[in-house]
Write a protein that binds this DNA or RNA. Structure first.
Length: 270
DNA sequence: AACGAGACCTGGCAGC
DNA sequence: TGCTGCCAGGTCTCGT
């Protein structure tokens, strides 16, 4: 489900919880990608939520005792309930708050994660290896160009690697490459400095546009407030196999790259 | 070091 | 209706 815009939309939907105190932690099924630490039921009890931030596709919830990391994997979703409700089949984890609010994680495929990061979350093994945020100024064309010098993998695979830059998943990789006019199959080290600049610009623009639309709702994404996103209506290529290119009219092609579906226009992207 | 394939899971859908 | 196979928004781990 979630790429950067969906995770950020989720984080924003949780902001009403800031300052609220945890009254209870419920772990119904700890077996997500990694086991949910059992100690959370004690560690988080009576702790006020101090801050909600995001790093890549992780949501960071800071408490005095440390920071909780939430990752939605492929199918995860967090809803903010005004009061407790009977849990559904794949509702694996809850944070109950003193004012009655419930943060509930639902994740059918269980590729998501709930982890404890202690006092210095940036040092957590999963976070410290992450590349820059795509919307930061440190992510720019010349920097990307340098990073690609020794990479022969297809450019699409490379921009989806969170160790290089975070937040660009399968949808927004295809969309950004279309907007930049770059063929997703191009070997990364064959992308010129100028086109790296254009690509960075379009990654940023695509993510910002998606954020503005509240993310994309394909199957199961809804923000924490329960509202869907609308960005899928603006897709140029993703999921549009054989439909005509919105720019030149040629049928959109779909191929597999790195075991992922990839969509592009063979005239607009070279 | 970089790359590609496999792994982890469940649910939805198309096709027979 | 029921079965089978394929697909899905992520990303770590392993073998080459």
């Amino acid at each position: 489900m979630p790429e950067l815009p969906e995770v950020e939309t989720t984080r924003r939907g949780l902001l009403p919880l800031l300052g609220q105190t945890v009254s209870q932690v419920v772990i119904r099924n700890p077996s997500l990608r990694w086991p949910i630490p059992a100690h959370l039921t004690e560690t988080l009890k009576h702790q006020p939520l101090l801050e909600l931030s995001r790093r890549g596709k992780y949501i960071l919830a800071r408490f005095e005792s440390g920071t909780l990391l939430l990752h939605l994997g492929m199918s995860g979703r967090i809803c903010l309930l005004a009061k407790d409700e009977p849990p559904a089949k794949h509702d694996h984890f809850d944070l109950h708050f003193a004012d009655g609010h419930v943060l509930r994680l639902r994740d059918p495929r269980r590729f998501g994660a709930v982890l404890w990061a202690g006092q210095v979350p940036e040092e957590h093994v999963l976070l410290k290896v992450l590349g820059p945020e795509p919307l930061d100024e440190s992510f720019h064309g010349d920097w990307l160009y340098q990073q690609l010098r020794n990479k022969t993998a297809p450019i699409k695979n490379v921009i989806m690697d969170s160790h290089l830059v975070v937040g660009v998943g399968n949808i927004y990789a295809s969309e950004s490459l279309f907007r930049a006019g770059v063929d997703p199959r191009t070997a990364a080290n064959k992308v010129s400095r100028k086109r790296c600049g254009k690509l960075v610009e379009e990654i940023k623009a695509t993510l910002r546009d998606a954020l503005r639309a509240g993310g994309s709702s394909l199957r199961d994404f809804f923000g924490a407030d329960g509202n869907p996103g609308y960005f899928q209506q603006e897709y140029f290529v993703y999921g549009r196999t054989d439909a005509s290119c919105k720019v030149c009219g040629l049928p959109i092609q779909s191929i597999r790259l790195g075991q992922r579906s990839t969509f592009f226009c063979r005239r607009c992207q070279r």
